[in-house]
Computed example of a mutant assay.
Amino acid sequence: MPRWNPDARERLVTAALHLFAERGYDEVTVVEIAERAGLTKSTFFRYFPDKRDVLAAGQETLSQLLTEGIASASTDATPLAAVGAGLERAAAAMTPFNRELGPVLHAAIAANAEL
């Protein structure tokens, strides 16, 4: 197992969401998430304080992108146009990883009544 891999966070998120969708949030441990990602438990905790935080991974970035887009709208833009600018900014930053993970996140949440 390599000591450092630049996609560790993405691998942890992907592993966690797939496990949550397959078995349910409460049935999955941090150790299982790390093992599925090919990482260690301590690596998991370098990126996330708790497994709940995996569910919100990327939300701060998304909020920042929306805010930047709204702020960049012209001063005479309607509220709808300003929100549209925010959505365009966020959509432009989406990667294939983000697009592929959306349905998995939805499935994980749908499979768990608590979520």
Rank of each mutant, 00 (worst) to 15 (best):
I70S: 05
V13S: 01
D53V: 08
A8S: 14
L105F: 11
L80Q: 14
L39D: 05
A111C: 05
L19F: 01
L17I: 08
N112D: 11
F20R: 06
P6I: 15
A34W: 01
E114L: 13
L62T: 12
A21V: 07
F44T: 10
A37N: 03
A15M: 01
A34P: 01
P6R: 14
S72L: 06
G86L: 12
W4C: 00
L12S: 08
F44W: 05
E35N: 06
T61L: 09
E60N: 14
S42V: 08
Y47M: 10
T61V: 12
E32W: 00
V13E: 03
G38E: 02
A34C: 03
E88C: 05
L19D: 08
N98D: 15
P79M: 06
A56F: 15
A73K: 04
A37E: 03
S42M: 12
N112A: 10
R46L: 07
A108W: 07
F48I: 10
P96N: 11
A107H: 13
E60P: 03
D76T: 08
L39Q: 07
V31W: 00
G86K: 12
R46H: 10
E60Q: 14
T78V: 04
L62D: 09
R9P: 03
E22Q: 13
A90H: 05
T75Q: 10
P96K: 08
I109Y: 09
E68H: 11
D26Q: 11
L101R: 13
H18M: 10
R99I: 15
V30T: 14
I70M: 13
N98M: 09
T61G: 11
Q64K: 15
E68Y: 05
W4F: 07
P49N: 11
A21L: 06
R11V: 04
